[in-house]
């Protein structure tokens, strides 16, 4: 039982990170129908940028801020490249462009922060809490709380703010949205900024536990994308559930089946889901009419 709970804790904290990265995929996909494979690079920028700034003896809040600024600049550049091209290019080409952008961001990160792995201290230290024999890092609690906060915040933004509603409307029907006066250009820029922020939050959360280096983004992209399609690319609660499910399935298959095949089992699950429910476990079937 203790082992099971320990597996669960590991799965949920990993899954929460997958969920945050997956939400970034989801937000951009909904608005632009582009799968942004540079999404994981924001995780890397969030972690490495903060670690890099800390090495210049900046206080933590400033270090985080400088990483966020760097990531937002990257998001804006990505938006500029992708959306400038979007007026002419087919979606497949744009997806390839995002892969190219991720390579470029990795290169830039290597120049800026070197090739080494870096970590940042957790605000709650490195001593675990013991709950009924289960070791829980305080950082894990922070990860879960922040993820819940980010999801609630995102939902609030889309449901209750005028700009969020405009983004939602633009995602549903861009032509209709511009007819009611919504400027799509702004919507796309905001989309990339939000996706970037979600990725960077994930990076800030995971770096105190794990370590990141300039090539860490790729693995996060893969897992985040898997979480997003598992839950249904278009739905916020779906992606969160998909991320948590992926994390827990990975952890439990490592714990009870074989740690050698945990990734294989997780990806098998995704293939089964795609074959039986292409819109994701929690996604709504698309209801477009022409």
């Amino acid at each position: 039982m203790v082992d099971f709970l320990q597996f669960l804790v590991a799965g949920l904290s990993q899954g929460a990170i997958y969920a945050l990265v997956g939400l970034g995929f989801s937000v951009i996909y909904r608005a632009t129908h582009i799968v942004n494979f540079a999404q994981g690079e924001f995780v890397m920028i969030g972690g490495l940028g903060t670690a890099g700034a800390l090495s210049f003896a900046l206080p933590m809040p400033l270090a985080i801020l400088s990483a966020l600024v760097a990531g937002c600049v990257a998001a804006l550049v990505l938006d500029l490249i992708v959306i400038r091209l979007a007026r002419f290019a087919p979606a497949l080409l744009l997806i390839i462009v995002t892969i190219g952008a991720s390579v470029a961001l990795r290169g830039a990160a290597q120049l800026a922060w070197g090739r080494n792995f870096h970590s940042i201290p957790s605000p709650f230290g490195s001593e675990p809490l013991h709950v009924y024999g289960v070791a829980i890092m305080p950082q894990v609690i922070l990860i879960l709380v922040t993820t819940v906060g980010a999801v609630v915040g995102l939902q609030w933004f889309f449901r209750r703010t005028r700009f969020g509603q405009a983004m939602l409307a633009a995602a549903i029907n861009p032509t209709a949205a511009s007819l009611v006066g919504i400027e799509l250009r702004h919507v796309y820029t905001a989309t990339f900024l939000i996706a970037g922020l979600l990725g960077m939050i994930a990076g800030l959360l995971i770096t105190p536990l794990a370590m990141v280096h300039f090539e860490s983004g790729l693995a996060f992209s893969l897992k985040g994308f898997a979480a997003a399609i598992l839950g249904g690319l278009g739905s916020v609660p779906g992606v969160v559930a998909g991320g948590l499910l992926l994390g827990v399935v990975e952890s439990l298959s490592a714990g009870y089946v074989s740690s050698a095949y945990k990734d294989a089992i997780a990806f098998l699950l995704i293939i089964v889901v795609l074959l039986t429910r292409p819109e994701g476990v929690f996604g709504r079937r698309s209801t477009g009419r022409v």
Partner: peptide, 16 residues
């Protein structure tokens, strides 16, 4: 309601 988007009195952060 989406058609009221330009109605400035709806405010940027409706519901804040």
């Amino acid at each position: 309601l989406a058609g009221f988007h330009l109605d400035s009195s709806a405010g940027f952060l409706r519901g804040l």
